[in-house]
């Protein structure tokens, strides 16, 4: 199951065998190298496991501590849960409003992700498949936006939203998510649409399909792998967004999205000393994303690393 492409195994390796476990003599090579291979193998596993502990350790600790009472946490932060304190989760979900924040996040995401994918693929399709004056300009306009840091837009974006009376509203936040996701989405999908064969599009046109119909019924299904990658990228980016909600959705605590809610919870629970609920809240926030990731790991990794390879 390695993702590293390896050439076909030699004739004496049965297909699907677990290669690391086989002790093999290699007659043609010197023994010293094989020893080196084994030591290196042990050595590399040791380092790799070390980082597994580093990467997953804090998260596992949070999930475990979520089942402990605040008193236990303060006494011994490293201890295992004695009795499962499920009430931490109910407190987090209701009193600390994690449920509400999660719902807000979902509602915002439903609108913003649909909008991003629709608008992004529309723009990308037109840029990739049609020649018209200004095509290059529009493409560069979107591509240039990828360099633009949101933090620079802080003040103007705030005033624009205020003037359009979109400040502290859901549509406002959705629109902002869409606008700031468009550059990369369009850029990525443009290169994707370019790789699709043009014959199919022409065939559809000859058969009398309109441009719109060709797009929605022929080209969109063909672009599915690209749409999935960029969809995952945007899903995580928008679900995890912190700066935009902090700027545009800061007035009413009931409208907070999940990351925003947890950040404020960290402050308020600190005053109350109710650490158990905070840990439970963190667990509730992290678990679904991690589960979804574990299921779609290959697509997620491909989608997210595509961002850096622009």
């Amino acid at each position: 199951m390695t993702t590293v492409p390896t050439p076909a195994p030699a004739e004496d390796t049965p297909a699907g065998a677990y290669p690391g476990r086989r002790r093999q003599r290699r007659p043609r090579k010197q023994g010293s190298q094989s020893v080196e291979g084994v030591t290196l193998n042990v050595f590399s596993h040791a380092f790799l496991v070390l980082w597994v502990v580093m990467a997953a350790g804090p998260l596992i600790w949070v999930a475990m501590t979520a089942f402990r009472s605040s008193g236990e946490i303060l006494n011994d932060p490293m201890g295992l849960p004695i009795a499962a304190h499920w009430e931490n989760f109910t407190t987090a979900w209701t009193e600390a409003k994690i449920g509400r924040y999660a719902l807000n996040s979902l509602v915002i995401l439903a609108g913003s992700l649909t909008g991003t994918m629709l608008l992004g693929s529309m723009a990308a399709y037109v840029i990739a498949r049609f020649t018209f004056p200004g095509n290059r300009f529009v493409f560069l306009l979107f591509a240039g936006g990828m360099m633009f840091p949101v933090i620079l837009a802080l003040v103007p974006l705030f005033t624009i939203m205020d003037n359009l009376s979109l400040l502290d509203t859901r549509p406002g936040l959705m629109v902002a998510y869409i606008a700031y996701s468009l550059p990369f989405t369009t850029f990525f999908l443009t290169s994707f649409f370019r790789t699709l064969p043009s014959g199919v599009q022409e065939a559809a046109m000859v058969d009398g399909a309109s441009h719109t119909r060709t797009f929605f019924q022929i080209m969109m299904p063909m672009a599915k792998p690209g749409l999935v990658s960029i969809g995952i990228f945007n899903f995580l980016g928008q679900w995890n967004q912190y700066l935009l909600p902090l700027l545009l959705n800061n007035e009413n605590e009931n409208n907070y999205v999940l990351p925003q809610g947890l950040a404020s919870l960290a402050v308020s629970q600190g005053y109350r000393g109710d650490w158990g609920a905070l840990f439970a809240g963190l667990t509730i926030a992290m678990l679904p994303v991690l589960v979804v990731y574990a299921v779609f790991q290959r697509q997620v990794q491909a989608g997210l690393t595509a961002g850096a390879l622009k």
Partner: peptide, 8 residues
């Protein structure tokens, strides 16, 4: 970091 396999 894996062990050397035959032919690789």
């Amino acid at each position: 970091g894996g062990r050397h396999r035959k032919g690789q």
